[in-house]
Design a protein around this nucleic acid. Structure first.
Lengths: 139, 139
DNA sequence: CCGAGGAGTTGAAATTATTAAAAATTTTTT
DNA sequence: AAAAAATTTTTAATAATTTCAACTCCTCGG
């Protein structure tokens, strides 16, 4: 889902395409580091000095609820965002703390998609360990 | 892993088996609701009125780092604990907010355990949706 | 048995993250 | 262009977590 599609959905759902919302969407689109609220705030501030943190909190919720971005549940107690809302597992490196996107394709659908008695709407898969960069450094 | 095994590991790693640590371990062992720090604090307070929150924070970290309990990454921004550190997926109900343990057996091991280039140490799987109780209520 | 040293605990204060409320501004509608 | 609605900003309140100095409880050597 690209930026224009996201804008279109916002519009369709009755939300204004404000300057701030677009800036947030655009930033997340280009940012591959799965930033926290604080990081998003810092970066957008550099470009646009008047940018309120409350606005960022508000809009991240709006965008998340529309399914345009992902709020990651991978690092306990810490909130991170991903501009790509399509299903893919994540990898958190215990050494450098970076989060990586994984694209494991069809294979990742081999685990149970249904649970008896429950209505499953979403599945999230997190891997934890050491990333390739950190493994090389160790040697 | 039962309580005695956990105690043994604590001892082996050079930690004292304090009253507080055992109380926390014991509580998590019997509690199936994946409590937050606040809930653990409230409950233990009822029994032992002098129990500091700082102690709970400290010891939850100690127990987690030894792998005796799980800190769940399932509800963004919120911290929950599970006394059972053995692999099992979780289900978060969007309606009632409860977290359920899932035991999907061998099936759950069919998805990729290894990721090219990375050292995978742990995998966590979260399901989101509506639990069976809430589904019944809806009708 | 005593006292020093260390690990652990406590309670309070400080810090950080998040949410809420009210006023100001912008956008949309008419 | 004016009125209404939506959004942003600022400030304040709340909640979660960490820090820290004082205190307690063990343990060990004398």
């Amino acid at each position: 889902m690209n930026l224009d599609e996201k804008k279109k959905i916002l519009k369709e759902k009755g939300y204004s395409l404000t300057f701030q919302r677009i800036a947030i969407l655009e930033y997340l689109e280009n940012c591959k580091t799965h930033p926290s609220v604080e990081m998003i705030y810092e970066e957008l501030r550099k470009k646009y000095p008047v940018f309120s943190k409350a606005t960022i909190y508000n809009n991240l919720q709006v965008l998340k609820n529309l399914g345009l971005i992902w709020e990651l549940e991978i690092e306990s107690g810490k909130v991170r965002f991903d501009g790509n809302p399509e299903f893919h597992p994540h990898f958190l490196c215990k050494e450098c703390g970076k989060i990586f996107d994984l694209y494991v394709g069809e294979e990742s659908k081999k685990f149970p998609q249904e649970i008896e008695g429950y209505r499953v709407e979403e599945i999230r898969i997190n891997y934890y360990g050491i990333c390739s960069q950190c493994r090389k450094k160790r040697k």
